[in-house]
Design a protein around this nucleic acid. Sequence first.
DNA 1: TCAAAAGTGTTGGGGGTACACCCATGC
DNA 2: GCATGGGTGTACCCCCAACACTTTTGA
Lengths: 277, 277
Amino acid sequence: MGMQGTLQFTTVVHMFSPLFCTSVCHTIAQVRRLFYFCQMGEMIHFPQEEPDHNVALSTSLVVFGFDGVDLKILLAKSSRPPFEGALFLPSRYLKASEELLLSAKKMFFDLFGYENPSTVEQLRAFGQVFRHPGGRVVNIAHYALVHTSDFLTEQWEQHGMHWVAVNEVPDLAFDHNAIVGYALERLKRRVRRRPVGFDLLPKEFTLGQLQNLYEKAMDKTFDKRNFRKKLFKSKLLIDLDKKSDGSGYGQHKGSLLFSFNAEAYSMMKLKGYDFVL
Amino acid sequence: MGMQGTLQFTTVVHMFSPLFCTSVCHTIAQVRRLFYFCQMGEMIHFPQEEPDHNVALSTSLVVFGFDGVDLKILLAKSSRPPFEGALFLPSRYLKASEELLLSAKKMFFDLFGYENPSTVEQLRAFGQVFRHPGGRVVNIAHYALVHTSDFLTEQWEQHGMHWVAVNEVPDLAFDHNAIVGYALERLKRRVRRRPVGFDLLPKEFTLGQLQNLYEKAMDKTFDKRNFRKKLFKSKLLIDLDKKSDGSGYGQHKGSLLFSFNAEAYSMMKLKGYDFVL
DNA sequence: TCAAAAGTGTTGGGGGTACACCCATGC
DNA sequence: GCATGGGTGTACCCCCAACACTTTTGA
């Protein structure tokens, strides 16, 4: 593809963008070519001739964290246009040479300071043409699971980052509210099909915290006795034979502590199961 | 971003691609800049400065079709480089101005000649850096559900298109085998959680066909009596009170015909359910 | 006449669901 | 002492799973 095509397309983007009227001037010939390109955009040829290398990629990370009581996601405050000052998901633009998942994992590393291979997964691409005022930027959204105790304070304060409960997410920049909504749906399904506690809970936790997590994630309440029966039957839990001293947030002093059975856990993660209560 | 950055990136792509040794020459300065860009690609800055508008998008469509006996997907034969002659999924490059889902739907329309709003959904982005030898092309894969009786013969023969049973998919171009695998997993989950028969079966069908579909999609076998009990309980089926004349493929002459109860169907699609047998 | 699919009921067991009271801790 | 959460057992019922034979049709 020649450079001419590239320039024409850039023009098309500007015409569609809110910046058009103020920032771009067109000659009649430009407008005519522009119209031609719009027409092409409407028509479908199968298979089409050539790739159009004029798109940018970004990735956003929906980080779910559980502090022992509430399920939260991590938000940042934008320090740059086009949404300066607005809240948004931790995000970055990708170089055209970067892997999608790897890039999300590296962003995770930058945020939390440790590698987390098992729980960074792609959600899907969010690609509304006008989601980004600066041209076509397709966002490949990912999500991750952490305990909220993991964080790097300096980095965070620098970028205005903080946790927000999932049912109190405010208006976000771009289409990030849609991404959060989709991520919540995905988490709900995942909680139902695979165990997630390992990734979200501290090493030692109480059954109250575990139930709390499931209730917040699935937006339901469960019967305490039935919940416990179900979990005990699954062999996922190891009774640590000691009681909480009440220091963990969301832990009632005196309640029994548990941890996960790693083998049973990874088995269920592989085979899948059904958490229906 | 200036044009300089664009050119540099194009260079990077070529260096990584298999075509590098034969098709591109570099000055020492170019190589030095190139190295710099590679380094940048390895480092993560949060948030990053500017979008890199040097990526192309394509979409592939995994079309699941059920002919009454087998669950199949639609393949095409490539008539152009870089995989001339190879089998692949119906695919096209996107203009930077095109919507993702809309583009997939339009491709569907081109293939089948009708609008199909309910069953074209995004799978996810497939973006391995080297999946396409011609530069960075990220594929936003979608899937769709049809009955195999729907097709446009001329278009199809022109592009070497044909149905292949899902358990007999050969080696495909690009990373399309991975896309098919992912689509099958998604379909399996979807069959379990939402009714899919409306989209895959003819208007009137036999219980044998329905069971066949579920068995092929979930890669399991079911007990005939239990399967029927389950379906009858669900109120999804309408007994049409007539028998097949054996003309429909996969229909045994004399077996009873059913259709779907649209209200119950859309209700279950909305609420979700569990098909466990 | 033979092979292939259609159609039809019963039983047992596991697990989901509903339900109430006493104890320990912190304020 | 009062509120909040921790911890425990039983009974019912529904639904999943296993199982076999007769009838119809087409080759």
